[in-house]
Simulated scan of single mutants.
Amino acid sequence: MGFTLWPGIYVPDWNLLTGGATAYGALMGLTSILTEKQSPMAYSKFGSIVGVSQLPSKIGMFIIYIPSVIVAILNRNASDVTRFQIINAVTFIHFMKRVLEVAFVHVYSGTTDLKTSVTIAATYATSAALNLAIVRRMPTSTFTRGFYIAGLTCFIIGELVNGYHHILLRRLRTQSNKETSKINELKEQGERKKKYFLPRGGLFNYAVTPHYAAEQLSFLGIMLLSQNTASIAVNSFPFIYLTIRSKSTYEWYKTRLSDDERKELQTRKKLLPGLW
């Protein structure tokens, strides 16, 4: 039998599922450190990085998120325990929100490496499936109201803040595209170069990637709702991965902004406003 640590985190029995999930989470975290620090994965701003097979970014992002939506749908009747149903619901909401944002919010112009899309899709979907399998086997007596409230609060705030800043990015990109048609593509030394802008509004005024921090808050909510050590391990990689990618994004802006905007960049943090 498992046991409970203060202040209520459950440590499940060590078996193939919980041990494998814990090892998987550690492996994904380590892989994020080793690969993302060396070369950011080739999607979004970094989609132009060398890739064997390129496809439009919108299609690549659909590939990343849709499998996790399917995982949640397939698990909707896996247990009638309320906490499991809630965790399955927030998993569905998180990834379905991302699918809808890909379809209706984000504005894409570049390409995504197919291998990168499939790799990230498999990571997210596997993590979601493992987490749901672990929670389904937990004793219902281990779930507490405090973790339920804290987890749901973190998840809701994270999703709302993340979504709001994605809308701000859309407005910036739309405005940038209009500017591009007029003055943002200039001939310099015989090459056409695109002018980039720092995102503004909301927490973008204080950090370069607050939407990453908000997504991490959503995953913290899922951890708290899941309330066990194996789930913490399997959901830990977004904290490592998005933190490293935030630094890469900050450095990316350094090489593409005007002198005035580079000065403004120096007043902003990378991920957490006022902290880092």
Rank of each mutant, 00 (worst) to 15 (best):
His94Met: 13
Ile86Val: 13
Val118Leu: 13
Ser44Val: 04
Phe62Glu: 04
Ile66Phe: 11
Val118His: 03
Phe104Trp: 12
Tyr65Gln: 09
Arg76Thr: 15
Ser117Ile: 08
Tyr108Met: 03
Ile64Thr: 01
Tyr124Ser: 01
Ala125Cys: 12
Ala78Ser: 14
Arg98Asn: 04
Gly51Arg: 04
Val81Ile: 14
Ala103Glu: 07
Asn88Val: 10
Phe104His: 05
Ile59His: 11
Glu101Lys: 01
Phe62Arg: 05
Thr111Met: 03
Val50Trp: 00
Gly110Phe: 00
Ile64Phe: 02
Val102Cys: 00
Val81Lys: 14
Ile87Met: 05
Val50Gly: 00
His94Phe: 15
Leu55Ala: 01
Ser39Tyr: 14
Met96Lys: 10
Lys97Ile: 12
Ala121Gly: 09
Ala72Glu: 08
Phe95Gln: 07
Arg98Cys: 04
Asn77Cys: 13
Phe95Leu: 09
Pro56Arg: 01
Gln54Gly: 00
Met96Asn: 14
Ile49Lys: 13
Tyr65Gly: 06
His106Tyr: 09
Ala121Leu: 01
Gly47His: 03
Val69Ile: 08
Ser57Asn: 05
Phe84Trp: 08
Thr91Val: 13
Thr112Gln: 02
Thr112Asp: 00
His94Lys: 11
Val69Tyr: 07
Met61Ser: 06
Leu55His: 07
Gly47Glu: 03
Val81Phe: 13
Lys58Cys: 02
Ile73Thr: 10
Asn77Asp: 15
Ser39Asp: 14
Arg98Ile: 09
Thr91Gln: 11
Lys58Leu: 03
Val69Gln: 06
Thr82Val: 13
Lys97Phe: 12
Thr82Leu: 14
Ala72Met: 09
Ser117Arg: 10
Val71Met: 10
Leu114Cys: 07
Arg98Gln: 07
Ile86Asp: 04
Ile86Pro: 04
Ala72Arg: 07
Phe92Val: 05
Ala72Asn: 09
Leu55Cys: 09
Val107His: 12
Thr112Met: 07
Ile93Ser: 10
Val102Glu: 01
Phe46Met: 02
Tyr43Ala: 11
Ile66Arg: 06
His94Leu: 15
Val69Lys: 08
Phe84Tyr: 14
Gly60Pro: 03
Ala122Asp: 02
Ala72Asp: 10
Val52Trp: 00
Thr123Cys: 14
Lys97Val: 12
Val102Asp: 02
Thr82Cys: 10
Ser44Lys: 09
Tyr108His: 04
Ile120Trp: 02
Phe104Cys: 07
Pro40Gly: 10
Asn77Trp: 15
Ala103Val: 10
Val99Ile: 05
Ile66Lys: 06
Met41Leu: 15
Thr111Arg: 10
Thr123Ser: 15
Arg76Pro: 12
Val71Thr: 09
Arg83Gln: 11
Ile59Val: 12
Leu114Glu: 04
Val81Tyr: 12
Ala121Lys: 10
Leu74Arg: 14
Val90Ala: 04
Val118Lys: 06
Val71Pro: 08
Arg98Ser: 04
Ala89Thr: 13
Thr111Pro: 00
Ala121Gln: 04
Tyr43Leu: 14
Gly60Arg: 04
Val118Tyr: 05
Ser48Cys: 00
Phe95Tyr: 13
Pro40Leu: 07
Ser117Lys: 08
Ala103Asn: 06
Thr119Leu: 13
Lys115Asp: 00
Val52Asp: 02
Asp80His: 15
Gly51Lys: 08
Arg83Cys: 02
Val118Met: 10
Ala121Asp: 06
Leu74Glu: 14
Ser57His: 01
Ser117His: 10
Ser53Asp: 05
Val102Trp: 03
Arg98Ala: 05
Arg98Lys: 08
His94Val: 06
Ser79Arg: 12
Ser53Trp: 11
Glu101His: 02
